[in-house]
Design a protein around this nucleic acid. Sequence first.
DNA 1: TGTACATCAGTGAACGCGCGTTCACTGATGTAC
DNA 2: TGTACATCAGTGAACGCGCGTTCACTGATGTAC
Lengths: 225, 225
Amino acid sequence: MSPGPTPKGQQRRAALLDAAERVLTSAGGSELTLRAVAEEAGVRLGHLQYYFPARADLLAALLDRVLTTSLERVTDLTDTARTANAEPDEESGLEPGPDPGPDTGLDTGLDAALDALLDGVLSDHDDPRLVRLFTEVWALAAHDEEAASAVRAFYDRYASHVASYVRDHAPGVSAADARHRAEVFVMLMEGSALFRSGITGRRSTDADARLRAVARALLGGEARP
Amino acid sequence: MSPGPTPKGQQRRAALLDAAERVLTSAGGSELTLRAVAEEAGVRLGHLQYYFPARADLLAALLDRVLTTSLERVTDLTDTARTANAEPDEESGLEPGPDPGPDTGLDTGLDAALDALLDGVLSDHDDPRLVRLFTEVWALAAHDEEAASAVRAFYDRYASHVASYVRDHAPGVSAADARHRAEVFVMLMEGSALFRSGITGRRSTDADARLRAVARALLGGEARP
DNA sequence: TGTACATCAGTGAACGCGCGTTCACTGATGTAC
DNA sequence: TGTACATCAGTGAACGCGCGTTCACTGATGTAC
């Protein structure tokens, strides 16, 4: 990208993107002006332009960072669940996750990893700022093919990580089926994010139980759903 | 709203909202300017302002129409499914008869209504314009509490209609459970819309089968998911 | 170690443009008598 | 049926403002010799 990769430059750049993210999540895309970002970051307009010559550069860098960060988070969550799952007993590494779920079905010890993964995703989505960020990302991608391409690549990788988890957890599931389960899981998570964030609804702990049950059935390899 | 309810006035108003909707779905919220809408509608800027004195009035009217239209569609779909379901065998009254209870089983004739409902929702979501409209609605609601309130009311009613369907179709399901199933169904549909539209993914017929299976299990009252 | 110089970091003012809004205006359509 | 008048429908020009962008500039920091 534009200015050199000196430590200070990279740090400033990140701080400017932080400011842009704050403006975007608190005020929305239409108010994401260069002047607002500069003020939020405490620098002059001209200086912001030193790092991001055009507004489009700032937007592209912000989108890239949001997707990269989110994918890292997904990778962490699925990798943790996969390794925890590979050694179900006597593992000192990670938390076993909250309660095994008092649902109609029977949870085995193996499902602790699944619940930890699910808790990770859902608790991330309890942060309205993150969800707002993604509504902006979707709106951007809906009208900008370059952005859409990056967004699709992100979700493709997201689903791949989830599919890998499914295959490890439920070896009887075919690769294709694991992929489909993962895709539906991601759809469900993105849809639920809208409702958890207060944008389209309010979080409900009761519906949460049903949501979790569906997600568990999808990722756990159960035949019926 | 503002100008009188004369036939011509209402017609013009609708035509102007049509134009605004086209601009919004093709160019996005940031390019939804009064001049662009006026040009799209073939009227002068001043005339557009005659119907919508401020930009905010246009936006509010557009949001209202989108939500009203979508809710009518949902009402149609669920009512059709409910009545179709209510008369499987000469029964015109309230109770749709005993649940066939196909827990692990095959589709009975009753499930035709469910599939019609599902087909209706999914085929609507195959129109990228509609989904783009909703990404804009979500982004708007994320930063405008008044819009968010209208959007939440819409989804609340949406879920209510679906819950009514579930109760009719599967009498063994409690009111609360039906509501939770409906909410998760709506989450799943909104999430899948993003992926069907090309914004976050591409439509995949294979994943579609899994998506439908999950939706059927939710709405059909199956115990497991 | 000191000096010269290039690059990096940051400032400040100005630009042209498109935006939403205002407003005075004209022509068309209805309505009362 | 005709006339008067109010309201509805639509025009056109101008406004002030905030926007992204440009550009010449200054000070700080590194680097070569």
